[in-house]
Amino acid sequence: MSGMLGMVNYWAVIVLMMVGFYTLIARGNLVKKLIGLNIFQTAVIMMYVSFGKITGATAPILIQSGDHGGGGAEHVVYSNPIPHVLMLTAIVVGVATLSVGLSLVVRINEAYGTVDEDEINRKDNGL
């Protein structure tokens, strides 16, 4: 894992990030924008989790010395748990913010009768 090969993972995450970003800025429908934001968010989480990965390591759940027929527990390498902790809470906060966004969209729909950005702008300026 060196040079180009070590970066492919990050590049794949960036591609996903940009797919979400494109949905966010190119589509006019507000619900679609929120879906795009969700994809973007998942990609960012993936980026953080990638930073915590160590090749050949295992999940950060400590193996007790008695668990596997004794021995070897000292030589196990664990991945970095800190990104996992931060991203775990970020996912739950993400769904909370998503719901606030969706409720705003619902209220916009009730006020304007549409959730399309262009339509809303036209109604605002045409009044």
Partner: peptide, 26 residues
């Protein structure tokens, strides 16, 4: 990527609850 807790949360929250909320909004 060894992030089992994150995977668990993503499966429960991302695939479960946020889909339900988005369907409710739709």
């Amino acid at each position: 990527m060894d992030a089992v807790d994150v995977a668990f949360t993503e499966a429960a929250v991302g695939a479960g609850i946020s889909t339900v909320l988005m369907l409710g909004a739709l």
